[in-house]
Design a protein around this nucleic acid. Structure first.
Lengths: 273, 273
DNA sequence: TAGTCCCCTTAACCTATGTTGTAGCCGCCT
DNA sequence: AGGCGGCTACAACATAGGTTAAGGGGACTA
């Protein structure tokens, strides 16, 4: 574990970049976020950060590297539920559940920050705008799962694959990890297959079709999207679900300490504790 | 719209029953919940409560009846993302997103309560235990989506179908809508197909297999599960993901107004708002 | 009483995707 | 240098599930 001294002019962290796609952070909020990510550790590839059935511990923030969130059936079949990218939070709900219903495993070497769940309560009380931004990011995670459900249920293999590539491109752009339509995809075809609900052989066929049609280039783990527009159209990609549009006004109204107009509650009316 | 008078001895609402599966509610909290659900309206079957692309409005609580949350592709293919049952919340994140990325459509006549999103902020500030319970319910929703992803990606048609039936049975039991392994499933086979990522013909085949093997009985919309154990085993159902186990202590610690030990924040340190 | 609409049911056939098997490449160990 | 393990590639074959088509029952209408 490393504990960095709280600097006066902190570097932007991926989480902060991601939340910035949603609202404009104040210096004070940036300092608080930096402080939250203060305690970090490094893990090698193929490490379980969390294991299905295990009791939750700290809340974690991915700072660097890739991981997957996945679930397995008793007989070994496996589904990758989502990719965990820098700026994503692991186990936000740790306080609420007895044990994890999924595993999180690193794909690359990673750097993760962790903090005790009590700090979340602190954050909700003291930094309502950050709380709203975190809720936004949690809600977006759910929206991504819903879209993936649409992929698995109703898109063909080719469409699914195209859709995933465009989604990753978009998500990585937000944290400055994709430029000019190319990025590193540190993933075996087996993992891609498990993410898309396909067999490894069929993912291979499908990637070849995408390559043959000139939509993407692959060398090693570097993937280049030659024509995002067309790839998005193949995957019927509509970025609505990523909810990248700003709406700072409305959320501040809901989460700030200002009393709401409708049903004003005096302190006298509050519950005792 | 109907506005009920706040009674001294309110009837338990489905939401309250559902949250009760997680923590023991105080009278005051029950009163507050009852008050939240105060303004209700009724809608006929096949009404859109929310439409993909539409701007979000109020937060809604399903009080009675069934609905589906679904997404559609431009060419008409459709995926049912989840079933909305009594006690479930619609558009909890309305404040955070510009527009809906999914639709919600009623299957039966329904009764829904609605309230302006500002009241959520109020709730988070004044009733931290309820806030935690709502967060629990939101997190559970996400866990359900992740499990459905596993179904669509890696379970066979027979397994998926069995799994869904057991899940619905469990969820309905919590709100007293299933007794003795039977319940009403107000759903056409087309909707079932869209929920399970199958064709309507194949759902039909699959249901017949389940009937022929004696695991379930169907007459009309009434479904009877003859052997939950065996059905759960066919569907590889592990109820871990429904997170029905209580953990009231830990969440109260995180969300209560008691100052955390680690990094106490004075009011003076708060952002200006 | 027949007509229409919606849904369920089944049969016959088709195809997207899974399975099995083999081969080649690359990095790594010793 | 050789061997081994993990990954990609691709061909041949198998099958779960999709598609098309047809019929039937119940509820409503006229």
């Amino acid at each position: 574990m490393t504990r960095a001294p709280a600097s006066r002019v902190p570097e932007p962290t991926p989480l902060w970049l991601k939340l910035s796609s949603y609202l404009v952070l104040s210096d004070e909020e940036k300092m608080y976020l930096t402080d939250l990510e203060n305690t970090t550790s490094r893990q090698p590839p193929r490490t379980d950060l969390l294991q299905q059935g295990e009791r939750y511990r700290d809340v974690r923030i991915m700072r660097d590297g890739w991981a997957i969130r996945h679930k397995a059936l008793p007989d070994g079949r496996r589904q990758v539920v989502n990719f965990v990218l820098p700026g994503d939070i692991i186990g936000m709900y740790c306080t609420l559940f007895e044990s994890a219903d999924h595993s999180v495993t690193t794909l690359t070497a990673v750097e993760v920050a962790s903090f005790p769940p009590e700090r979340l309560g602190e954050l909700f009380r003291s930094f309502p705008r950050l709380a709203a931004a975190l809720a936004w990011s949690g809600a977006r995670e759910e929206a991504i799962l819903a879209e993936r459900l649409l992929s698995l249920g109703r898109r063909t293999a080719l469409e699914r694959t195209a859709h995933l590539i465009v989604e990753l491109l978009r998500r990585l752009s937000v944290v400055n990890m994709a430029t000019d339509g190319h990025f590193v995809l540190p993933v075996t075809q087996e993992i891609l297959a498990d993410a898309l609900g396909l067999s490894i052989v069929h993912i291979n066929r499908t990637l070849r079709r995408l390559r043959d049609s000139g939509l993407i280039d692959l060398n090693g783990q570097r993937i280049t999207v030659n024509d995002v527009r067309q790839l998005a159209s193949v995957g019927q990609f509509d970025e609505l679900y990523l909810h990248l549009i700003h709406a700072p006004r409305r959320l501040e109204r809901a989460f700030s300490d200002v009393r709401p107009r409708h049903a004003p509650h005096d302190d006298a009316e509050r519950p005792k504790a």
